[in-house]
Nucleic acid binder design. Structure first.
Lengths: 374, 374
DNA sequence: ATGAAAGCGCTAACAG
DNA sequence: CTGTTAGCGCTTTCAT
């Protein structure tokens, strides 16, 4: 007994009771009010007298009360959590998208639950998980979703918005950059820069984004009557992209212009062209990307690329999303946010069409050019 | 009646009833068993006869039942969600950390809830949020936490592990790279490369990581009897880092070696040194980073840097975390995962100490060197 | 092995 | 404005 007492005295910290979190009921008892009064104090639009509110707040702070959001979401049916599925965070464009999204959502009092779905993989298995969590909405960043599950999401009222991918399935919204037009613009730009041999480095054929970029590019080239571009597959990975570049550059008739389906692959291509082939990128070989990630502007690359404005894409996605969560089920169609061709030094310049916009040089097809009959 | 029937026939899809998700009770009724039987079927270690299980599974699949994890977490007190607080995802090192962490946790059936706390900001406000969600654990990536809240987390039994930051507060574990030793190693390396004027580009003084790196570097330099390094603040941002580099390079006695507290700032420094001062980095000016992010290896930078192995750090963090969640409260001390000085081309080479390890060139202090009396 | 019943912590009618 | 009451969907004794 004495033993115990002295022990206690010498113990620096209490036995760490691992006190369970305090509940609303406890606060109520402490404050001498009903449990529902406590609930009302912590519910935005509820009517409580100043006196009770004061008592409750006092009790809550001394007890260290925090409402259990899990419990409240069980009854309200709203978790204020949105799932975000992304192929990974190594591509800075995705990282930026997710980071911006997370910030934008947190402003609106939503939290983000993060899921990873390898590129080229469908998000289906993950979705099974997600459905169990009763999330309020789902954002698919560069991820696919079977139409079966898309249907199911619609049925249980889970709004789904795809970012940087689109889908046929109605009922799921999408926000993408202007892939087709952007790629066509790149085609025109390269044509105007009097390139002759074109190549396209695809991402994954399962990606609508890559397909759209390829189509836009191919079509513009076709309109101009040039040979269709060589196609290689970079698969959105550094390994495959460098390999693809190598194949392209060691071919007999080496292309003088490569359009890569994203910046990351474009930068890999630049690396390979420079360090393995000693090429002066921008003079001997033109390389153009897509995304305009932060790194594209770095002096080490100065990549010419078509921009996809992350902020606007996220804005758009968030708008769709909160509207859908608020019940207003606006048209779940595709949304396209437009970008521009930011020209830097990785591709040979055409004689005209260049202009300064917000500290960037951008290229737009000169009017006369459009007079060309097909 | 007939009207309804024909209506049904002509409706392609049902009026999109926005059917609430099906509950365990509904499955039970459908299968002709009790609701608790359904629960047991979906609870790993429960005893159910094959016959009931079969009935339940059949009912569940036809109805499209998914157990509500929110509801179950309310009663079990375990959400299998861990909060991850990160300053942002623009730094590839953080992005890699979060991505890897998310993957590692998902293997163990944990989900990640993402929070952002600006650099230099404490995670306290976010933590208030987090505590409301009854998460199972918390990972702080490069974020601070007041000891008051750390205490509170411990009290409610929320395990906290800091990654890439440490703290005095016991009861919160931490996993960091070997900042002090790594910085000292960089000091020795630069000394051995016969540099004379040193500079240190700090991150934020509120960051234990930056402080430790500074201390290690400073101490080693002091041991060697050289002048203490000039100190500039890059604040972990591109803007401030480029500005700091400019100040350093336009000074009368320009340093010939800059150690930057992370790779990102080091790469900014390289950009500025090259493009604004025309310096040949690696010959006229040495720049060393810390982290060994993916980009450091790119031909465009070839940055010499001290590595922090992301996989090991995440492994370590996850181990601590799941152990803590499983009740075993192992010593919540600091854990240090060691790295090595990966030498590439951004800093002048010392005459010896270089060796090849796993496709990298690394530098270790040659034995004789250590014979130096202070 | 199974069902009935008692909550987990909270919100939302409903009376007063 | 406030307390009482009834659940949200699930897990978990406790009998059977």
């Amino acid at each position: 007994m004495t033993q115990l007492a002295t022990d206690d005295i010498f113990e620096k910290k209490p036995p760490r009771a691992l006190r369970r979190p305090v509940t609303g009921h406890e606060v109520a008892r402490f404050a001498g009010v009903s449990q529902s009064a406590v609930s009302r104090v912590f519910t935005p639009g509820a009517s409580v007298s100043d006196r009770t509110r004061a008592k409750v707040v006092a009790a809550a702070t001394t007890l260290g009360y925090r409402p259990n959001l899990i419990a409240s979401s069980l009854i309200t049916g709203k978790s204020r959590i949105v799932g975000v599925v992304v192929p990974g965070l190594t591509n800075p464009f995705y990282a930026a998208l997710v980071g911006t999204l997370s910030d934008a959502l947190s402003v609106r009092e939503y939290r983000v639950m993060l899921f990873t779905a390898r590129h080229g993989t469908s998000a289906d298995p993950i979705l099974e998980e997600i459905l169990r969590y009763r999330l309020d909405a789902l954002v698919l960043v560069s991820a696919q979703l079977s139409s079966r599950l898309a249907e199911e999401c619609a049925e249980v009222g889970l709004p789904v918005v795809m970012v940087n991918r689109k889908t046929d399935s109605e009922a799921v919204s999408s926000v993408t950059g202007d892939n087709q037009a952007g790629a066509a613009c790149i085609g025109s730009f390269l044509l105007a820069g009097s390139h002759r041999h074109f190549a396209f480095m695809a991402g994954l054929d399962s990606s609508s984004t890559s397909r759209d970029r390829e189509a836009g590019f191919r079509e513009r080239l076709h309109q101009a009557g040039t040979m269709p571009p060589l196609k290689v597959r970079g698969s959105y990975t550094a390994e495959e992209a460098s390999c693809a570049t190598r194949n392209l550059l060691k071919a007999d008739t080496r292309p003088d212009a490569i359009f890569c389906a994203n910046d990351q692959m474009a930068m890999v291509a630049i690396d390979v062209a420079r360090s393995e082939f000693g090429l002066d990128v921008g003079r001997e070989l033109s390389i153009v990307g897509f995304d305009d990630t932060q790194l594209a502007a770095s002096p080490a690359y100065r990549l010419t690329t078509f921009s996809q404005p992350v902020d606007e894409m996220v804005d758009s996605a968030v708008r769709v999303l909160v509207d859908a969560c608020s019940g207003r089920d606006l048209s779940a169609g595709p949304r396209i946010v437009s970008g521009q061709l930011v020209v830097r030094d990785s591709a040979r310049l055409p004689p005209n069409g260049l202009s300064q916009v917000g500290g960037h040089t951008v290229w737009t097809q000169p009017a006369k050019q459009s007079i060309n009959r097909i």
